[in-house]
Write a protein that binds this DNA or RNA. Structure first.
Lengths: 96, 96
DNA sequence: AAGATTTGGTTTATTTTATAAACTTGTTTA
DNA sequence: TAAACAAGTTTATAAAATAAACCAAATCTT
């Protein structure tokens, strides 16, 4: 039987966020927003879910006077991605 | 910017169904149900969506006296899977 | 042979999720 | 100083997934 797909990661926007964060030390809200094309509201909600799961950390600070939200992936997040990709391969392995 | 993921395929159960059908000429409802572990109701709904999209064909016949529903993938379905996997790789490419 | 159970589903209702719209707080610009 | 903009959050709506309830016919039980 196929492995279940972590529902937290099996979401287009959350997966895109995780994908971006895999490649960098950290990324801020505005950057992630422009890279993904998501609306701010949607992104805010999905980042919160990833944080609650312990997959990313969110730090709120300031860039001069403007607020800035910076995200980065945790080890737990990295491990979850690894497992997700491994499971996913069972689903798409035949499509080559 | 990341390619969008075909929402019809980006669903655990529908993806499992497509994955199964990729490897075989055809498969019947009961087989798909046991392989995926899905409930009959859920499977019925998701098969219908795949059929409406033209990704699979569904034929209803009989096995002796018992009804039998047989599914197989269409060329359109195969092509959609190919594109989906290609898009997905952009998301998970970093996780190796 | 009548009733109970199983098979193979479909339909409908409920829950969850994703998404967008509206709002808030503070900043910069005209 | 009023209007517009930036960076988000909160709340409402739309869509999706899932489960519960149901149905018809076959088979098993006594």
């Amino acid at each position: 039987m196929l492995k279940p797909l972590n529902p937290l990661l099996h979401s287009e926007l959350r997966l895109a966020v995780m994908s971006i964060l895999l490649g960098v030390e950290s990324a801020d809200f505005v950057y992630i927003r422009t890279e993904t094309g998501a609306t701010a509201g949607n992104l805010s909600v999905q980042l919160d879910k990833l944080q609650r799961a312990g997959y990313i950390t969110i730090e709120k600070g300031f860039n001069g006077k403007m607020p800035r939200t910076t995200c980065s992936m945790t080890d737990l997040g990295r491990e979850a991605m690894r497992e997700y990709v491994e499971a996913l391969k069972e689903y798409i392995g035949g499509a080559r």
